[in-house]
Design a binder for these strands. Structure first.
Length: 502
RNA sequence: GCGCCUGUAGCUCAGCGGAAGAGCAUCGGACUUCUAAUCCGACGGUCGGGGGUUCGAAUCCUCCCAGGCGCACCA
């Protein structure tokens, strides 16, 4: 039995049609509550005109108690109007877990995110990585998977050494080394009497936590490198030009990757990468998800090749690529280099627009779309940020419920639903489809878009219809509670708070 | 040169095989309310361009044009 009302209805109609039916929500209300194109899709197989099939289907579908009216339109669309009882029953199943738990099969999933080197505070670029990756993790968890979020950082490489040297030079009052790190934060770290990398790491942990990302596991590159020696003999490799190469090109990569410098036996970065791939998969994750900026998209092939070379199914490695965040100031692009102190840090963004607006903003665009942040405009954009529109709907509902508690309601569901009630309720029943698709496509940006639609429908409902003291009070309160749950869930999935008051 | 991403309303973007959308901006209306951080209305589009596939293309294929990001013995 499908888990939610829309799927059950689709299943019933599928049975009648003898083909898989997907119910769509038409934009135009004249096209009904739901529409399906089965007749158009199956017409070639039946060798019959689509409209004829649609007519037959309409006559049989309208006998279902759930269906009030069925029209055939256009080339053969079937437009459906759903009955009042269907709505009332749909409302009853909207509980706190509504729309979740659909994962099939349940998996152990690791999402590795942010993973910026501890050479500076969290940048807005990394913040997008975090906002996106964490939302994907939350979606997978809501779907029913066992999800672990991991932050991997390099504590041994050249950049870290350079960072230490930069802090050291600062402490001695000397000029920074060639290409070294500069900026206010460097002075903050220099003022502390402790290891710069550990201090920076602690700062990153604090900022990540403040940004509502809960990391389950912090993994150091030094730990991974310790596994390399034992791993090497198992690799498909060869020596040439003073270097040991991994033969990744035979496993789907565009070229072979250098592993070890023969002269001194020092490991090159791919050695750690491949060891980390094995480390993840050996820890028992069915799936290891990497969240990488577009500047790392060349990684996809080599990571999958690494898995394949080690004898794992490369499909267990999944790489999510998001386009970069560009910093614009007074119409001019900044370079965004941490070393040159040219970046915008997350803490600066949080100061200006706050956590809710920042998380909303960074996750509302498709990962395929680059984001420009104009620092000067950030605060201005705050007031226009739709996050407050959605939060306001939640707070308004909380207000109604507070007031309603004072005088208990007693009334049955209305004999006929108001169009505003229907629209709102219908919107809520979209939620399971929205989350399932957002999860499947790793596209959390669908959530804020949907949440705005829910808030829209609620604000309209609220404006025209009275809840407390109305004849339909009990039903409308239930509708309010269901709306509140769906909004709260959407916000939670993207790491935004759902306030009781505003 | 090769690879990935993008080009939809003045601006920022959704939609990615089914009947063109939202926010902002601009203009005009609605508060004795369960919160006006709200609501209603108007304005606004050869969906970068050409070919193709399909009953049907913003959506798929192909070629152009424009922009972003890669193509390290840096991470």
């Amino acid at each position: 039995m499908p888990a939610n009302s829309v799927d059950r209805l689709a299943a019933k109609i599928s049975q009648i049609a003898g083909a898989d039916v997907e119910l769509e929500r038409p934009n135009d209300p004249a096209h009904g509550d739901y529409a399906t194109n089965v007749a158009l899709r199956t017409a070639p197989a039946h060798k019959r005109p689509p409209r004829e099939l649609a007519d037959e289907l309409a006559q049989r579908v309208v006998d279902l108690p759930e269906v009030e009216r069925a029209d055939v339109a256009g080339p053969g669309f079937l437009n459906l109007w759903v009955a009042r009882d269907w709505f009332v029953e749909a409302l009853e199943e909207i509980d706190a877990d509504y729309g979740g738990g659909f994962a099939q099969p349940h998996q152990r999933v690791q999402v590795e995110l942010v993973s910026a080197n501890p050479t500076g505070p969290v940048t807005v670029g990394s913040a997008r990585n975090g906002a996106y990756g964490d939302s994907v993790a939350r979606l997978l968890r809501f779907a029913g998977h066992a999800v672990e979020e991991e932050y991997y950082f390099n504590d041994t490489g050249r950049q870290v050494d350079l960072f230490r040297e930069s802090v050291g030079a600062r402490r001695r009052g000397e000029a920074p080394p060639e290409g070294g790190y500069v900026g206010e934060y460097l002075e903050e770290i220099a003022a502390l009497d402790r290891d710069p990398v550990e201090a920076m790491l602690e700062e990153i942990r604090r900022e990540i936590a403040e940004f509502r990302i809960s990391i389950d596991s912090w993994r150091r590159q030094a730990e991974i490198e310790a596994e390399v020696a034992e791993l090497l003999p198992r690799l498909d490799m060869y020596e040439a030009e003073g270097t040991v190469w991994a033969r990744t090109s035979t496993y789907g990569d565009d070229k072979d990757r250098p592993l070890v410098r023969s002269a001194d036996g020092s490991y090159l970065y791919f050695a750690a990468d491949i060891a980390y791939v094995r480390d993840k998969l050996e820890r028992g994750f069915d799936r290891a998800i990497y969240v990488l900026g577009a500047d790392h998209h060349g990684y996809v092939a080599r990571l999958k090749a690494a898995a394949a070379m080690l004898g794992y199914d490369p499909d267990r490695i999944e790489v999510l690529i998001y386009q970069l965040v560009h910093i614009v100031e007074r119409g001019e692009a900044r370079k965004g280099s941490k070393r040159r102190g040219d970046v915008v840090f997350l803490r600066e963004l949080l100061e200006k627009i706050g956590i809710d607006a920042a998380r909303w903003y960074l996750v509302s665009r498709s990962a395929d779309q680059p984001i420009d942040i104009d620092v000067d405009l950030a605060r201005e954009q705050t007031q226009k940020n739709p996050v407050y529109y959605v939060q306001y709907a939640h707070a308004r509902i909380a207000g109604i419920i507070r007031n309603a508690d004072k005088q208990p309601a007693a009334s049955a569901a209305p004999a006929a639903l108001d169009p505003l009630e229907r629209e709102l309720l219908k919107r809520l029943t979209d939620f399971p489809t929205i989350v399932a698709e957002a999860t499947e496509r790793r596209a959390p940006h669908a959530l804020p878009i949907y949440a705005i639609r829910v808030a829209d429908d609620f604000h309209r409902f609220y404006h025209d219809l009275r809840v407390i003291g109305s004849d339909e009070e009990a039903f409308r309160l239930a509708l309010c509670r269901a709306t509140q749950k769906v909004i709260a869930r959407c916000l939670d999935l993207i790491g935004v708070e759902a306030p009781e008051r505003m």
